[in-house]
């Protein structure tokens, strides 16, 4: 079984991001970029499936600018087998991503697609679900455990009340949550090996997908600054202030 893992190049989670002065977006100039952490988890899961003999090949795909090849290389250095870069400098929204991924799935015929539950830049949490609808495949989102059986998968998902276990027919879509696994480091020997692994370059047009945005961003703003707190002398004053000033009681 082949496993397909989409990986996205996003602002590194350590970076304190800044909104552009004209409020059109986040300033990405000279900012450290890394693989979306949920995608790292997906890559790790796919590699573990391969190591366990459940998967035969791990293919990673990224949609984005030329530098997204670095993100693919990171996945290859972790242990994925080959990469596909669908190169574009345009903004690609979740629906277009899902359509492009459908194109890749049609070509590659994987038995399982593991998608991060969301990307930490725009937090859309849509791609996996849209892809599942486009393909007509089953989906298990927010996975914290994946067990591959014979032609099916048992997926434990994190839901509000606790854990839910689903059984899906393969092929299927799984979206990974934080607790699915702890991704490995790209070891130095594997970084060198990754250089020699195949990385194919494609364009959105190769899949016949129109990636023009369907959503328009009106404005991007910093969250409001938290104003300074005050100290109250006793509980009575606190309750009083909650009633009269904050109006929450």
């Amino acid at each position: 079984m082949k496993v397909l893992v989409p990986v996205k190049r996003v602002v590194d989670y350590n970076v304190k991001i800044r909104v552009k002065a004209d409020n059109t977006g986040v300033d990405l100039a000279n900012v450290k970029m890394s693989m979306n952490p949920f995608d790292e988890i997906s890559v790790e899961e796919a590699i573990r499936l391969k190591e366990a003999g459940k998967a035969t090949e791990v293919v990673v795909v990224s949609i984005g600018p030329a530098q997204a090849a670095e993100t693919i290389r990171t996945a290859l250095a972790m242990g994925a087998d080959r990469g596909i870069l669908i190169k574009t400098d345009e903004e690609v929204q979740p629906l277009a991503v899902a359509k492009l991924l459908k194109g890749v799935v049609d070509e590659e015929q994987p038995g399982l697609v593991i998608v991060g539950k969301q990307a930490i830049d725009d937090d859309s949490n849509q791609t996996g679900q849209m892809l599942s609808a486009l393909l007509g495949w089953g989906q298990a989102t927010f996975a914290s455990k994946v067990v591959i059986g014979d032609g099916s998968a048992e997926v434990t998902r994190e839901v509000d009340g606790g854990l839910e276990t689903l059984s899906l027919k393969l092929p299927a879509i799984v979206t990974s949550d934080l607790r699915l696994n702890e991704p490995r480091y790209a070891s130095l020997p594997n970084i060198m090996k990754a250089k020699k692994k195949p990385l194919a370059e494609k364009a959105p047009a190769d899949y016949g997908v129109d990636i023009a945005p369907r959503l328009k961003t009106l404005k991007v703003e910093e969250p409001p600054k938290r104003s300074a707190g005050i100290k109250v002398p006793d509980v009575a004053t606190l309750v009083e202030k909650l009633k009269t000033e904050a109006g929450v009681l």
Partner: peptide, 18 residues
Amino acid sequence: AEHDRQTVAAMLDTAEKL
């Protein structure tokens, strides 16, 4: 000869993370 900027960057990434 087998090293280049990209592999070095990836190694520094691993060092930083680890």
